[in-house]
Nucleic acid binder design. Structure first.
Length: 588
DNA sequence: GCCGTTTTCGGCCCGACTGTTTTCAGTCG
């Protein structure tokens, strides 16, 4: 996709300009990059149909950047960018991922120590070459080493939300192939783990060769690692691998069970089979040499005396015991997991996404969001913008919030007159300040349909201070929901220090809802913490935290995480209708 | 470098935090 390639280049251009201390231009390039990333139309098409003039219509694209785009479309290169790369031959995209490293430090380290990539950086930090540099020091060097360790832990793994769109596309194409009888995702992708090593797809077919040929010729494949009679492995342009296996129908279920894992789950299921005098493998369930199951996963589990276990639970974290109890009619059995189609609305949507931040059409955007929500099938959608403490995100002050409240009222009336079923709720995502107070006055918070509060600053407080900070916030009767409660960013930032048991206790006592933030980078609460919260009887809500319209689809990842945390419909507040939801919010 | 108007150039994303250079640059959200 040319849009993505150009976005990557413009983002790097922004970094280069930043290194040179150029003011404002980096922002312009970043904005153009973001604009291209979120554009629904291929920029090549736009140019072919309308030339430079059409390019100038793209928000954030002016004369200079339009010329760059034209140059790239014609020659595959941008001279300005190539010159920079020659001058500073750096792996910016990997170096910038180290926490605390920015363009300036990257440039200094290149000039003083010739550091070009992560490997160079690690070598220099370990040899204590960084600390003595002007502007650096012991702590910085230590932080770099820590940042590198953190990156390594997740090396070679990709965010679920990064992989899923591409794989879904491949999946749909294969599914439509007439030679494909059955198809499923497998591996950690099917279990919906938050990060994925590589993507596995399983197909049942009588014509494996034809399926294989079709697969390796799909768009977006960068390299073919191998292609056999029933297995092929490819590297996608996005950097991750996809493995396809084609199987005969009679062992499709057992293969699916085997390749879905987890390894730990499979070890136990095989042991159970052995206890029953059976053998379970990817080829089926066997009694002696006779196959007694394998066509479907349900059959496989049934053959070893277990009910079907949802893929999201297969981690050997108690699901086998629960399944065994259920099989014996004892309690508690397996949870009846919240369904992907049971969500009735999304309460965490920002109406000021970057691409419209500077335009005046915010009200139109709220209406657009509502229309998207209707398409998804929601009953309600909640607008919850940042508040004034977050200056960078144009946080709203009291006056602006009240104004927004009136605007939303009007949009609701208009939608109602048009016989639309959607209802827009109005909230905000206020900031929990260091002392636990909220950055918006209570008399304004009271007027909103709901209030989300979250920590967006001072992440490095002590455990005791952070626990206290959240506790004070939850005790505010106007605070309904705590957003991204632990603050972690997958592969980038640890959770903040806090006493989570204490937080759960106070959430329970105050009736505060904890958010399951569905953003693929957050997934916060995570499965483990969701399970802890559920055990305490705490209500949760799955929100996307959308900053763009497209991000409403993140809901899928949030539900997946909830399911990994054994959550049932009754645990998740936004499975309620709008009326029920508002009633339950009032109870606090 | 882009945008929007003040139509020809000034404003753009800013406050907190961190570590270090002791008066502030770089990074983060």
């Amino acid at each position: 996709m040319v849009n993505q390639e150009l976005a990557k280049i413009f983002n790097e251009m922004a970094q280069f300009l930043e290194m040179d201390g150029v003011a404002f231009k980096p922002y312009a390039y970043q904005r153009a990059a973001l604009s291209l990333e979120t554009l629904n139309e291929d920029v090549g098409n736009i140019y072919r149909q309308g030339g430079i003039k059409a390019l100038l219509e793209i928000p954030g694209v002016g004369k200079a950047i339009a010329d760059h785009i034209e140059e790239y479309l014609k020659t595959g290169k941008i001279k300005h960018y190539e010159d920079y790369k020659k001058k500073l031959p750096l792996k910016i995209d990997e170096l910038i991922k180290v926490e605390g490293m920015g363009p300036k430090k990257i440039k200094t380290l290149y000039q003083k120590l010739g550091i070009k990539n992560l490997k160079d950086l690690e070598k220099a930090a370990k040899a204590h070459k960084i600390a003595p540099l002007f502007g650096f020091g012991e702590t910085t060097e230590k932080n770099i080493l820590q940042g590198l360790e953190f990156l390594k832990r997740d090396k070679g793994r990709f965010l679920l939300g990064y992989i899923m769109p591409t794989v879904t596309d491949i999946f749909e194409k294969l599914k439509n192939l007439k030679e494909v009888d059955q198809i499923s995702l497998a591996g950690s992708l099917r279990r919906k783990k938050e990060t994925i090593g590589d993507a596995d797809i399983l197909v049942a077919s009588k014509h494996p060769a034809k399926v294989m040929d079709f697969f390796v010729k799909l768009d977006g494949i960068e390299k073919i690692w191998g292609k056999g009679g029933t297995k092929a492995s490819v590297r996608m342009r996005e950097g991750f691998d996809v493995d396809l296996r084609v199987l005969p129908e009679k062992s499709y279920g057992s293969a699916l069970q085997y390749f879905t894992g987890s390894k730990e789950h499979n070890i136990i299921t095989r042991k159970i089979a052995i206890e029953k005098g059976l053998k379970l493998s990817e080829y089926g369930v066997f009694k002696g040499k006779k196959q007694i199951a394998g066509k479907t996963e349900e059959d496989v589990y049934k053959a070893i005396g277990l009910p079907f276990i949802e893929p999201e639970l297969r981690e050997n974290e108690g699901e086998i015991e629960a399944a065994l109890r259920q099989a014996q009619g004892k309690l508690p059995g397996l949870p009846k997991l919240v369904g992907y189609n049971e969500i009735k609305g999304d309460l965490h949507c920002h109406s000021k996404p970057d691409e419209v931040k500077h335009s005046k059409n915010l009200e139109n955007f709220i209406e657009e969001l509502a229309l998207s929500a209707i398409e998804i099938g929601y009953e309600y959608i909640g607008i919850s913008d940042h508040t004034k403490f977050l200056k960078i995100d144009d946080g709203l002050n009291e006056e602006q919030l009240l104004k927004q409240h009136e605007a939303i009222k009007k949009i609701n009336e208009k939608l109602k007159n048009e016989n639309s079923k959607i209802r827009i709720l109005h909230g905000c995502e206020a900031n929990i300040l260091n002392d636990g107070s909220i950055d918006i006055k209570d008399e304004v918070l009271e007027k909103l349909d709901y209030v989300i509060a979250g920590v967006h600053s001072s992440f490095k407080m002590s455990k005791q201070e952070m626990t206290q900070r959240l506790a004070v916030a939850m005790q505010n009767p106007n605070v309904d929901i705590i957003s991204h409660p632990t603050g972690r960013l997958i592969g980038r930032r640890e959770e903040y220090q806090m006493d989570f048991d204490k937080i759960l206790e106070i959430a329970k006592k105050t009736g505060t809802i904890l958010e399951i933030n569905a953003n693929p980078l957050r997934l916060d609460l995570n499965g483990f913490n969701i399970r802890r919260a559920k055990a305490q009887g705490i209500k949760m809500i799955i929100n996307t935290d959308s900053h763009q319209k497209d991000q409403l689809t993140f809901m899928e990842y949030g539900v997946a995480q909830a399911r990994r945390g054994w959550a049932e419909k009754g645990d998740i507040t936004n499975t309620l209708s709008a009326e029920e939801l508002l009633k339950s919010l009032k109870q606090k």
